[in-house]
Amino acid sequence: MRIPCPHCGERGNDEFFYLGAAGLTRPAADAQPEAWHDYVYLRDNPAGKHSELWQHAHGCRRWLVVTRDTRTHAVFSAVDATP
């Protein structure tokens, strides 16, 4: 796969480290255990469009939100994870 790093340009996926789904909100410190369970463990895991966190570990070391189709691997966008 090739991932278009917004800072470095398109690079092979071996330069990146994958974490998992993006867009999960870390619960407040006093949130209920269910909220933490959801955040740490439960995933939509869609077959289709998926927003996910990749770090350009062998490049700029920025965390990116990459939107990709998990069926075709087509990449729709890649933006820095810091808004």
């Binding site: 796969m1 071996d14 691997h73």
Partner: peptide, 12 residues
């Protein structure tokens, strides 16, 4: 190492 439903991998 990444979410996928495509039954193929990558070269690395």
């Amino acid at each position: 190492g990444y979410n996928s439903y495509a039954q193929r991998g990558s070269m690395p």
